[in-house]
Amino acid sequence: MSIRSIAVFMGSQFGVQSEFKTVATTLGAALADQKITLVYGGGRDGLMGVTARTAMAHGGQVIGVSPKNLAEDAISPAEITQLIAVDTMSERKQLLMSHADAFIVLPGGFGTLEELSQVISWARIGLHHKPLVLLDVNGFYDHLWAWMNDSVTNGFVDVADMQHVTLCYSVDAALAHIRQY
């Protein structure tokens, strides 16, 4: 599978650790340098904005997908390759998933968790067969990863379902995993 685009799910805020912004910047640059289009939620602030702007600054291609009710939070269309306005969050997620050949999840909040869950759920029922990486920055996803494994141990998730997500600790490891998928 040739990887031409990666959807990145991440926070619209920076979070409290400076490493979150550092990793988002590193990812934006790496995607551009490797000629991989960044597909993301279209936000102008936080990790979303810095990843998009970094990819563009490095000569990359960036597609943002933003619901019309969040238009005031969207990045300026002039700052990225393409900004797609949609009516609903469901439509946004559908487009993000259909425009991407793979997925990377950076630190974020409830929206990021929702996107992660949907990608896993859709893979589980066969709606896509695309790689998904949870990029753990300074242990941000340690508790979630433990919960996922506890869900297997306690019989709520089949062990085979864990194949749909991989935990990585660096941008290089995440991109290497996706290339080898």
Rank of each mutant, 00 (worst) to 15 (best):
G46A: 06
M48L: 13
M48C: 13
M48H: 14
G49Y: 08
V50M: 10
T51F: 00
T51Q: 06
A52L: 11
A52S: 12
A55P: 03
A55H: 02
H58E: 00
G59E: 01
G59H: 06
G60H: 08
G60C: 04
V62P: 11
I63W: 10
S66R: 12
S66F: 05
P67A: 13
P67W: 05
N69I: 12
L70R: 01
L70E: 04
A71P: 03
A71I: 13
E72Y: 14
D73G: 00
D73R: 15
A74D: 06
I75Y: 05
I75A: 03
I75W: 09
E79K: 09
E79Y: 01
I80W: 00
I80V: 14
T81Q: 11
L83S: 09
A85V: 11
V86L: 04
D87F: 07
D87G: 14
D87Q: 15
S90V: 13
E91Q: 15
E91C: 02
R92A: 01
R92I: 01
R92G: 03
K93H: 10
K93T: 02
Q94W: 13
L95I: 08
L96K: 08
L96Y: 03
L96R: 09
M97R: 07
M97L: 03
H99K: 14
H99V: 05
A100W: 07
D101C: 07
A102V: 08
A102F: 11
I104M: 05
V105E: 00
V105M: 00
G108R: 02
G108S: 06
G109P: 09
G111D: 00
T112M: 00
L113C: 06
L116P: 00
Q118P: 06
Q118L: 09
V119W: 04
V119C: 02
W122S: 04
W122E: 04
W122Q: 05
R124V: 11
I125M: 13
G126R: 12
G126H: 12
L127K: 13
H128D: 00
L132K: 01
L132F: 05
V133R: 10
V133E: 12
L134D: 00
L134S: 02
L135S: 08
D136C: 07
V137Y: 10
N138H: 14
G139N: 11
F140Y: 15
F140E: 09
D142L: 07
D142V: 03
L144R: 10
L144M: 14
W145P: 03
W145V: 05
W145Q: 05
A146M: 14
W147D: 14
M148Q: 09
M148F: 13
D150C: 11
D150R: 15
S151V: 10
S151P: 08
T153W: 09
F156I: 02
V157M: 06
D158Q: 11
D161C: 07
D161H: 13
H164A: 13
V165S: 04
T166E: 13
C168Y: 08
Y169L: 09
S170T: 12
S170A: 01
D172N: 11
D172R: 06
A173C: 06
A174V: 01
